[in-house]
C-alpha cells in the first residue's frame, strides 16, 4: 500500500505539470492584461509596471520563470492587489471556503445517505416518491435561486440569521451559506444512495443472507450497505475538491471572503498568478482526493483491493 501511494503521487507530477502549462497558456492567450483597468495611467508607468512583472518577455520565458518560483514554493505576487502575495490571498481565502465546503458536504452526506437509504427501503411507497421528488427539485433548482430565497425568508422576513458576511466564521454567519450549498449535495447523494441500495438489495447474496434467517437490520448493515458507498465515494472525491476550493455563487451572494470569489475576480482582472495559484490548489485537491477514493474502493470491495 505505501508503495502504491508513492507511485500514485509520483504520477501526479506530470498531471500537475500539464494542468499548470495549459492554464498558464490559456490565461496569457486571453485578450487584455492585468493593468487594463488603470485607464488614466501614464504610459511610462505602465511600461515600468509591465517590465517589473516580466510581462514583456515571451510566454515561454515567463512560464519557466513561474515554474522556477513554484519549485521554490513561491506562487508569486498578485498583479492587481500589489501589496499581497498569492500565497497570502490563498491562506486567507482557503480556510473560509474549506469551512463552508466541508460543513455543507458533511451535512449533504449524512442527510443524503439517510434519505436515499430510507427511500430504497420503502421502495415505491409514498415516502419514496416524496423524498425523490424533493431530491429532484434539489438537484434541479440552482443555488442562485435557493440562496436568495433563504436570505429572504430567514434573513429578512424572520430576521433569525445574518444575511451576509463572514465575521470570523461565527456559526450564525455559516448557517445560511452552508444550507444553500448543502441542498443540491443532499439531493444528489440521496439519489445515488437510493439507486445503489436498490441494486444491492436485489442481489443473490442478499437473498442468501435472508435465507440464513438473519434479522432485517443485520441483513441491511452487513450485506446490503457496503456497495452503496462505492458510487457515493466516486461522487464525493471531485465534489469535495469542488466545494473546498469555493463556490463562486455562494461566496458572492453571501459576501464571504473565500477563494472561489477571489478566483473569478482574478480571472476577470487577468491577475495571472492568483488564477494559477488557485488552479494549482484545486488540482492538488483533485489528485489527492482521487487517490483517497481509489484507496477507499479497496476497503469497500476486496475484489478491487490494491496490492
Amino acid at each position: 500500500m505505501p508503495g502504491y501511494i508513492i507511485r500514485r503521487l509520483f504520477f501526479a507530477i506530470p498531471t500537475m505539470f500539464v494542468i499548470i502549462l495549459l492554464t498558464f497558456l490559456l490565461m496569457h492567450m486571453a485578450p487584455g492584461g492585468p493593468f487594463d483597468d488603470l485607464v488614466d495611467i501614464d504610459p511610462e508607468v505602465l511600461a515600468n509596471l509591465r517590465a517589473a512583472y516580466n510581462l514583456d518577455d515571451t510566454v515561454w520565458k515567463q512560464f519557466l520563470a513561474y515554474l522556477g518560483g513554484l519549485l521554490q514554493g513561491d506562487l508569486g505576487p498578485s498583479l492587481v492587489y500589489r501589496e499581497q502575495t498569492v500565497g497570502h490571498i490563498i491562506a486567507v481565502g482557503l480556510p473560509v471556503s474549506v469551512t463552508i465546503g466541508l460543513s455543507a458536504m458533511t451535512i449533504g452526506l449524512s442527510i443524503g445517505l439517510v434519505c436515499g437509504i430510507v427511500a430504497a427501503l420503502k421502495h415505491n411507497s409514498v415516502l419514496d416518491y416524496t423524498l425523490m421528488a424533493a431530491a429532484m427539485t434539489g438537484v434541479a433548482v440552482p443555488t442562485f435561486v435557493t440562496a436568495p430565497l433563504l436570505i429572504l425568508i430567514f434573513g429578512l422576513y424572520l430576521s433569525w440569521l445574518p444575511i451576509s458576511g463572514w465575521n470570523g466564521g461565527q456559526i450564525q454567519h455559516l448557517i445560511l451559506p452552508v444550507t444553500a450549498l448543502a441542498i443540491p449535495k443532499i439531493a444528489a447523494i440521496a439519489r445515488i444512495a437510493r439507486g445503489a441500495m436498490l441494486e444491492s438489495i436485489n442481489t443473490d447474496y442478499v437473498r442468501t443472507a435472508r435465507a440464513k434467517g438473519l434479522g432485517e437490520f443485520k441483513v441491511i448493515v452487513h450485506h446490503v450497505l457496503r456497495p452503496v458507498f462505492i458510487p457515493i465515494t466516486s461522487y464525493l472525491g471531485p465534489a469535495i475538491a469542488g466545494v473546498m476550493t469555493g463556490s463562486v455563487i455562494i461566496e458572492k451572494i453571501f459576501g464571504l471572503p473565500g477563494i472561489g470569489r477571489a478566483f473569478v475576480d482574478a480571472a476577470l482582472n487577468r491577475d495571472y498568478p492568483v488564477v494559477m495559484g488557485i488552479v494549482i490548489v484545486y488540482a492538488a485537491f483533485i489528485v489527492l482526493l482521487n487517490l483517497i477514493v481509489d484507496i477507499l474502493y479497496g476497503f469497500l470491495d476486496p475484489r478491487i483491493r490494491q496490492t
Partner: peptide, 28 residues
C-alpha cells in the same frame, strides 16, 4: 411474519442456492 420465518430459516430449514458466485456476499 419475518420473525417467525427467521427462526426457521437458516436453522431447521435451509436452502442451497444454485449460483455460488453470486450467492455469497463478495465483500465479506
Amino acid at each position: 411474519s419475518r420473525q417467525v420465518m427467521n427462526k426457521i430459516r437458516g436453522e431447521s430449514m435451509c436452502m442451497i442456492f444454485q449460483d455460488a458466485m453470486a450467492g455469497l456476499t463478495p465483500f465479506m
